[in-house]
Nucleic acid binder design. Structure first.
Length: 564
RNA sequence: UGGGGGAUCGUCUAGUGGUAGGACUACGGACUCUGACUCCGUCAGCGGGGGUUCGAAUCCCUCUCCCCCAGCCA
């Protein structure tokens, strides 16, 4: 995984763990990652994954992957499978694979215990009534008329709830705590609801299902989890978490610690909204490369290492944050810059005829797989009389400091020769259709004359050898930083209509599609690209642009334009 | 106006009484057969007001702003 020389930045949770270990509270820590299998994991989940697994790795502890599968109405096996895949892809392996549903029997027994102790009762009010009587943020709730039921009656009713004698919603089991508690979670929270629905793992066995609060802490205790890490919104559930643990003969005593979610700008990060985007076809599935899901990022070309490093570098705290997407992009660039083999691809082709290159000839040039890592060897790149260059690399009437091709100007063809533009050919509409250039044979890469310096270097692909490819360019999914900020408009209104741009006729050099070629490349000067085999229909290769390279020139132009 | 949290460079984050540090971004420069990378340098911050103290991001008071909670969701 990470190089051992990397130092782990500390944070308040790590400090707690360290202190607990030093104090001898635990022989070893146990953490857990507890997703509900009701959707795909996103980059925010990766924070929790890295935190939990990272802590256990660092301190020699264990981490369980536990499916919090207490609501059969929302859950599905396909999500569970996707979650497993994503966690493994991220680079982590769990010690035990657990399910809250594994504990349904134990939970039921403990609930019986609470009933017998007079700490839980069957409430037969309907949902609306329960809600109405819960009180408000400022007013206390009122006791249910069923709150005083006898233990015998509670036991009988609860048994029959379990046996499936009732319809959905007819009764619930509630903890008897305090209807006037200022913390609403303590106003006799529901422990079980009747759901006559099959569960993806327990089938038709159960007609009642435990609520989150009644399942989570107990599951932690059963697994001997020492540090139960969750996000901030559960902070005011902690008193309840502790209360439930106090009522049962728990086999261990876990501690809940909350940290802030990591939000990214220009996207949304709730499963509910991501599901909407998928179901309403605003994107092409959970693994659409524009999605912040791990499946989407993977398809986009993000590497596990870059995501791990991203979260490690950001740290963990309790303050709300919105992380700039640029930070994530920078993390992949960094990783890919070191690992991705280089190649040339032309996305917006303009034909160049090398007038003094013999017709029908092919010359094979040597080009480094990675210029900073000569040990990775070289690839062979063919050139012929006609080549493609990037349309944007030529300007007939260029601005100041334009180092690329212009009439009469010289530029180096990356890995090849210096050429001079001698003619600009235009179509009837005045648009440039073709360039005639003369190459300087002395300036060939690797030859004595190669050290002649020209200011610009551009990439190219031999027209006779280039492979046709489709390239998909991505921009941010939303056009505003925080799509949820405006309470008056729906976040979907802020979807960026230009988040996907399909380039049908790009050309890539042959090495990119050769046998055994990597799926990940840096197309020099344009960005990092991931082969998307799943998207390929016929023979044509498809590439997703993971991220662009930093482009100081483009930024300069933008600034100039802004200044007028 | 109930309860629970939070506020430190643009962003993320260290720092519980002793010169406010790092990372990313931005900016300037060097290098360059990728206007990339790398290297060097620069800018930039303790929400406000009081108080305690020789000394306060840190302790006290007060104000402001932000987030979460009234699912038989998690």
């Amino acid at each position: 995984m990470e190089a051992s020389t990397d130092t782990t930045p500390t944070n308040f949770i790590r400090n707690i763990v360290k202190a607990d270990l030093e104090a001898g509270k635990h022989a070893a820590i146990v953490t857990r990652f507890p997703p509900e299998p009701n959707g795909f994991l996103h980059i925010g989940h990766a924070k929790a994954i890295c935190l939990n697994f990272g802590l256990a790795d660092e301190f020699g502890g264990r981490t369980n992957l536990r499916f919090d599968d207490t609501n059969p109405l929302k859950e599905d096996e396909v999500y569970a499978q996707a979650i497993l895949d994503d966690v493994r892809w991220l680079g982590f392996e769990w010690d035990e694979l657990c399910h809250a549903s594994d504990y349904f029997d134990q939970l039921y027994d403990w609930a019986l215990h609470l009933v017998r102790e007079g700490k839980a009762y069957v409430d037969s009010q309907d949902a609306d009534t329960i809600r109405a009587r819960r009180g408000t943020l400022t007013e206390p709730g009122e006791d249910s008329p069923f709150r005083g039921r006898s233990t015998e009656e509670n036991l009988d009713l609860f048994q029959r709830m379990k046996d499936g004698e009732f319809g959905d919603g007819e009764h619930v089991l509630r903890a008897k705590i305090d209807m006037a508690a200022p913390n609403i979670n303590l106003r006799d929270p529901v422990m079980y609801r009747i759901l006559n629905a099959p569960h993806h793992r327990t089938g038709d066995t159960w007609h009642i299902y435990p609520m989150y609060d009644w399942a989570h802490g107990q599951s932690d205790a059963l697994e001997h989890v020492t540090h139960s890490l969750c996000t901030l919104e559960f902070e005011d559930h902690r008193p309840l978490y502790d209360w439930f643990l106090d009522q049962i003969p728990a086999p261990s005593r876990p501690r809940q610690i909350e940290f802030a979610r990591g939000n990214l700008n220009f996207t949304v990060m709730s499963k509910r909204r991501l599901r909407e985007l998928v179901e309403e076809k605003h994107v092409d599935g959970w693994d659409d490369p524009r999605m912040p899901t791990l499946a989407g990022l993977r398809r986009r070309g993000y590497t596990p290492a870059s995501i791990r490093r991203f979260w490690r570098d950001l740290g963990v705290s309790k303050s709300d944050s919105i992380i700039d997407m640029g930070v994530l992009e920078n993390a992949v660039r960094d990783d890919l810059n070191a690992t991705a083999p280089r190649a040339m691809a032309v996305l917006d082709p303009l034909k160049v005829v090398l007038t003094n290159f013999p017709e029908g000839d092919t010359e094979w040039l040597e080009a480094a797989v990675h210029p900073q890592q000569p040990e990775r060897g070289s690839r062979r790149v063919p050139i012929s009389r006609e080549i493609w260059v990037e349309r944007g690399d030529f300007m007939e009437d260029p601005p100041r400091k334009f180092f690329r091709l212009k009439p009469g100007g010289e530029v180096r063809l990356r890995n090849a020769f210096i050429i001079r533009c001698t003619d600009v050919i235009k179509g009837a509409d005045g648009a440039v259709t073709e360039l005639h250039c003369e190459l300087d044979p002395e300036s060939r890469s690797g030859m004595p004359g190669a050290d002649r310096r020209v200011k610009g270097t551009i990439h190219w692909v031999s027209a006779a050898h280039g492979q046709a490819a489709e390239v998909r360019l991505y921009d941010r999914l939303f056009s505003v930083e925080n799509p949820l900020a405006d309470k008056d408009s729906d976040y979907r209104q802020h979807l960026n209509p230009e988040s996907l741009q399909v380039v049908e006729n790009a050309w890539v050099e042959p090495s990119v599609l050769a046998d055994g070629a990597a799926d990940m490349h840096q197309f020099e000067r344009t960005g990092y690209f991931a082969r998307d085999r799943a998207a390929e229909q016929g023979a044509k290769a498809v590439f997703n642009r993971t991220v662009t390279l930093r482009d100081t020139w483009a930024r300069l132009l933008k600034e100039r334009a802004a200044r007028g």
